[in-house]
């Protein structure tokens, strides 16, 4: 046991150091010439458009469940009129960004880990390098930037659908028009609710893209390593999303 802990700790520290070096390489290549714009657009399509069905369903259900679960408690205090505002603030500040980011960590992070991992195993990354193409610039920079841009958009989209889901939930046992629901909701939401959520969404996107690419790019040589890369990408990206959220909440709290 005494030996076990230091070994695990050293593996973790090595992993963190490697991830940091990978981040520096990615930043360096981001600002180099010959940006791969076509591949960036392709990745935006893959990450953004192809995640819409999953994010849509998740967003609607988030709002629906939140409303249905909260309504009885608010009813006890005679505060049902606060329901739209409570749903809006919960969704926009916390639930929308975190749940959507975790869903994206599962879908996009694992996809990147598996794709780059299999490219490594089948020597496609080596082939790229030999043909004088920088694989970090072509594969990693484009994916990380696309995730950084598209995941905040997906989060805002999920928030909007969550509000619709909330309105649907409010109408299961009550009767409220869409206009009234949204008027009441936005009466409780301010710019200081939206801005921190949007800012942390960019960090969520960046970390999901970075971890997915890092795990895939540093995969071993066997086919087993593709599965390991995909799995560990999801685990690490999800963990980092939660850690970033904790930090973001603390920072937001300092300014409010």
């Amino acid at each position: 046991m005494e030996k076990f802990v230091p070994v695990q700790a050293s593996i973790l520290l090595t992993d963190v150091a490697d991830l940091f070096v990978f981040l520096l390489r990615t930043i360096k290549e981001t600002f180099s010439r010959n940006f791969e714009f076509r591949e960036f657009l392709r990745q935006c399509f893959q990450i953004g458009y192809k995640s819409l069905p999953l994010v849509s369903i998740t967003g609607i259900i988030e709002g629906l469940v939140l409303t249905i679960q909260s309504r009885p408690s608010l009813l006890k205090f005679g505060a049902v009129s606060m329901l739209p505002g409570m749903v809006a603030v919960s969704l926009i500040r916390e639930m929308g960004p975190v749940i959507t980011a975790l869903i994206c960590a599962g879908k996009i992070g694992s996809g990147m880990g598996a794709e780059l991992g299999s490219m490594k195993v089948t020597e496609q990354i080596d082939a790229m390098e030999v043909s004088s193409t920088n694989p970090i610039r072509f594969l990693v920079v484009t994916r990380v930037l696309a995730a950084t841009l598209m995941i905040p958009i997906l989060i805002i989209y999920a928030d909007a659908l969550g509000m619709l889901g909330g309105w649907a939930g409010a109408n299961i046992k009550g009767d409220v028009t869409l206009v009234l629901f949204f008027t009441q909701a936005f009466a409780h939401v301010g710019f200081d609710d939206l801005l921190p959520a949007v800012i942390k969404s960019f960090f969520f996107g960046g970390v999901i893209g970075l971890v997915g690419c890092y795990k895939g790019y540093s995969a071993g040589r066997g086919t087993e390593s593709v599965g390991i890369a995909a799995n560990s990408a999801v685990v690490l990206a999800s963990l980092l999303v939660i850690i970033i959220d904790v930090i973001a909440v603390q920072i937001t709290d300092m300014f409010t």
């Binding site: 089948t122 020597e123 496609q124 080596d126 082939a127 390098e129 030999v130 043909s131 004088s132 193409t133």
Partner: peptide, 30 residues
């Protein structure tokens, strides 16, 4: 490396690209 052609054991064709795109890829860059 532009003067060297390397045929990998696995072929290493880019899975996400068509044959045309695989062939275009090095040409467009070099």
């Amino acid at each position: 490396r532009k003067k060297i052609g390397f045929l990998f054991q696995s072929g290493a064709l880019y899975d996400s690209m068509t044959v045309r795109q695989n062939l275009e890829f090095p040409l467009r860059r070099i």
